[in-house]
Design a protein around this nucleic acid. Structure first.
Length: 405
RNA sequence: GGGUAGAUGCCCGAGUGGCUAAAGGGAGCAGACUGUAAAUCUGCCGUCAUACGACUACGGUGGUUCGAAUCCACCUCUGCCCA
């Protein structure tokens, strides 16, 4: 017997909180949900967190439900304070519009839009038109400040300070749900677990205003075994835009997850059948490397397409297993007028180090090799002739880069 | 509006006139060990310079001083208390 969608979500441990389990279950299993997920345009590309939400959308769409993608062109003007310890920097209208456009393009690759399929809306279309006093009279009475202040999502900010601007975010999000419910028959909202308070506010508002039930369900946040959000590196988020995070780096991010997190990631992020995943659960120790490879391949393939995933996998294997093929390695064109160039300058031009001092240090500590040969002198220079064919630079153990002229 | 505490490097945080590029921790980077894992150990960790050294930096702007993260004035921002 085929597993129903709710059961599948449960088995994948994607469900965090639900306002009413029975009703939501019936709704989505019957394909009768018209649900929305909101995406605030905080950057010019989606990242892994958004990806999870998009996957959920796809799963629900495949089960016959109708998704509404809500782009936060209006809420982006405010900034969601949920779970944050500092205020978001304010974005200009131009930035927000630009980001919305970027989001749209990326989403079209995951979700099918069109007649009887998914629709995409932008809350700027109604939020920006609101009149302050009218809004206050319309929904203001439905919100209890006392309750709002108790909300989990503001906890962190109660210590460091919360501006009135951000405090209103919840009201805007609740209003969105109410608007979608009354104008588009939207009966369900999904979101990350950090959105729970905001979503509840929406369900409450709808009940108070219309007497109808509209439910909310959150998906588990993807945390690693240390309790930190996954999809973040020291240099920032792992982006879905390959100009911001190269396909190779994207692949490597997942190839390198900790043992403790692999299966969770496979379960929550990939579309692999559950029985296949169950088989992997017996893997132990070094065998888990196989699972990591699968994870990296599956995700890269979902985000960047099969061809790109194969390329990334091939170059990773070539590099780590034999050290041969370099055709898909990140490459930088070196600029110089001399007939030779120092490794230090190459490292900087390739963006492998931030400063000359760092590059020097790296070499002194034995962390750099060129074409498989360890560099021991900071004076090491590469002749132009060699650069014409391209050289392979290795920084540390895992970072490879090609430099060519 | 009144009172009060504060703003230090990527983050947290010590430092209250010279010994401070600024303790300590975290993050990060490299090396050893490994399985492209984790844990552990070692080194590094403002910029430029092979090095000597130079420059930039303790919210902002001025000032006092031979010398200021440290003292003074004003400004900006934030927490807390009172209204």
């Amino acid at each position: 017997m085929k597993m129903n969608i709710f059961e599948e979500l449960q088995k994948r441990q994607l469900i965090a909180q639900i306002t009413n389990e029975e009703e939501v279950k019936n709704l989505i299993n019957a394909g009768k949900a018209k649900f929305y997920i909101g995406f605030d345009p905080t950057a010019d590309s989606l990242h892994v967190g958004h990806f999870m939400a998009l996957c959920l959308m796809k799963r629900l769409q495949m089960a016959g439900n109708t998704p509404i993608v809500l782009i936060g062109g209006g809420t982006g003007h405010i900034g969601d304070p949920s779970g944050r310890s500092d205020m978001r920097s304010m974005m200009t209208k131009e930035m927000i519009d630009h980001n919305c456009e970027c989001f749209k393009k990326q989403m079209e690759r995951f979700i099918e839009f069109g007649e009887d399929k998914a629709i995409m809306l932008n809350n700027a279309d109604w939020l920006l038109k609101l009149n302050y006093v009218e809004l206050l009279r319309e929904v203001g009475a439905c919100f209890s400040v006392n309750n709002m202040l108790r909300a989990e999502c503001y906890k962190q900010r109660m210590e460091k300070g919360l501006s009135f601007l951000e405090f209103n975010y919840m009201i805007m999000q609740a209003y969105d749900f109410y608007y979608l419910n009354t104008h588009h028959d939207c009966n369900l909202q999904f979101g990350g677990d950090d959105q729970w308070s905001n979503m509840l506010a929406g369900s409450d508002l709808i009940r108070k205003k219309t007497g109808r039930d509209a439910h909310s369900m959150t998906i588990t946040l993807l945390l690693n075994s240390q309790g930190k959000k996954m999809g973040k590196t020291a240099s920032g988020a792992v982006w879905l835009d390959k100009n911001k995070t190269s396909v190779y780096d994207f692949y490597q991010y997942w190839r390198n997850v900790e043992d403790a997190d692999v299966l969770k990631c496979i379960r929550m992020l990939t579309f692999l059948p559950l029985d296949e995943i169950e088989k992997m659960e017996n893997l132990k120790g070094a065998e888990l490397n196989q699972a990591k490879e699968i994870l990296a391949y599956e995700l890269t393939s979902l985000v960047h397409g099969e061809d790109e995933a194969k390329k990334a996998q091939a170059s990773a294997k070539a590099l780590f297993v034999q050290g041969g093929d370099d055709s898909n390695m990140p490459t930088t064109k070196i600029e110089t007028n001399e007939n030779e160039i120092s490794v230090i300058d190459i490292l900087i031009q390739c963006n492998l180090t931030q400063s000359k001092g760092e590059a020097r240090r790296l070499i002194q500590q034995g962390g750099v090799s060129v074409d498989e040969e360890k560099i021991n002198s900071i004076d090491y220079k590469v002749p132009i002739e060699k650069l014409k064919e391209g050289i392979k630079i290795k920084k540390g153990k895992k970072i490879f880069h090609k430099a060519i002229i």
